[in-house]
């Protein structure tokens, strides 16, 4: 066996190329975001630049309605995550604890919903939202994101729920508690780690979704962040790359920090729950 120190050095050497490639886009974002505008297109290209222009961020914020897009993204992601969880928890519980007609069918149906990419369905979805009167309404994204994530959330939660012993609930039933009470009082607190993991996953998916947001949101004040940033690049007579990158930095860093903090739960949840 190698000593821990030796092993650490070896592992970091192996990981180094990957880490460099992972950090590269972040470095690109940052270095471009703080560059003066006239140093964007220089030849030969270089990492260096003359001064840190932090004003780029402020300019970008005002020019691109970044704050509005940020709020939209937060609203959609948080609400969609909550909705997906509220619908998935009982379903996953039922799948984990009961035998009932159509269970296998339902499982396969969920797998199929997972297969559909929003882009494939976008026109049908648009017509649907139109009938529901939800076009140009952020709630149309909330509903679709919740629906598209449900397959994964139910599957994830169910596998995790399977690993929670039934004894506690059974004891509660003996004491005359209803199924609902035992679910809320006894079971859910035990399931918190799995719920957190599922929530992170759904949140990230919703936060990052692009195609549906592009199609459903008609006016610029309803744009979510990915659409907002894409619209700074696409079909413009001129792309303000330093503003675009300032936008991506601001859109990314908070999530990256949050994510770094929560990722341990993600792995633990996968370990406890998935693929049982």
């Amino acid at each position: 066996m190698m000593s821990k120190a030796k092993r650490s050095i070896l592992y970091w050497i192996i990981l180094a190329p990957l880490v460099v490639v992972i950090l590269f886009p972040f470095a690109v974002m940052f270095v471009t975001a703080v560059r003066p505008r006239d140093e964007l297109f220089v030849y030969p290209p270089t990492w260096g630049f003359s001064e840190f222009r932090w004003e780029n961020f402020a300019e970008m914020w005002v020019k691109t309605n970044f704050g509005g897009a940020l709020l939209n993204s937060l609203y959609v992601s948080i609400t969609a995550t909550s909705a997906a969880l509220i619908l998935s928890i009982p379903a996953a519980y039922a799948m984990s604890r009961y035998r009932f007609a159509g269970k296998g069918l339902y499982k396969n149906f969920l797998l199929m919903t997972q297969m559909m990419s929003p882009i494939v369905l976008v026109l049908g979805l648009f017509r649907l939202m139109m009938t529901l009167g939800l076009v140009n309404d952020l709630n149309s994204l909330v509903i679709t994101y919740a629906a598209f994530n449900m397959a994964f959330t139910i599957w994830m939660l169910q596998s995790y729920f399977n690993s929670i012993p039934r004894d506690l609930e059974e004891a509660a039933w003996m004491d005359g508690a209803s199924h609902l009470t035992s679910l809320i009082r006894i079971f859910l607190p035990l399931a918190v780690p799995a719920i957190v993991v599922t929530a992170i996953f759904t949140f990230i998916n919703s936060w990052n979704e692009f195609v549906l947001a592009l199609t459903m949101m008609r006016s610029s004040e309803d744009f979510t962040l990915p659409v907002q940033i894409y619209s700074q690049v696409a079909g413009r007579y001129q792309v303000e790359w330093h503003h675009v990158m300032a936008g991506t930095v601001l859109a990314t860093v908070p999530v990256a920090i949050l994510f770094s903090w929560l990722q341990r739960y993600l792995i633990r949840g996968m370990a406890l729950g998935a693929v049982k």
Binding site: V135, N136, A234
Partner: peptide
């Protein structure tokens, strides 16, 4: 007047789905 600003690259798609959806 309700102004909706749309980037060129997505304008045709936007109008297509708008017309298709009756909006």
């Amino acid at each position: 007047i309700n102004i909706q600003v749309v980037p060129w690259d997505t304008l045709l798609q936007r109008l297509t789905t708008d017309v298709a959806g009756g909006t």
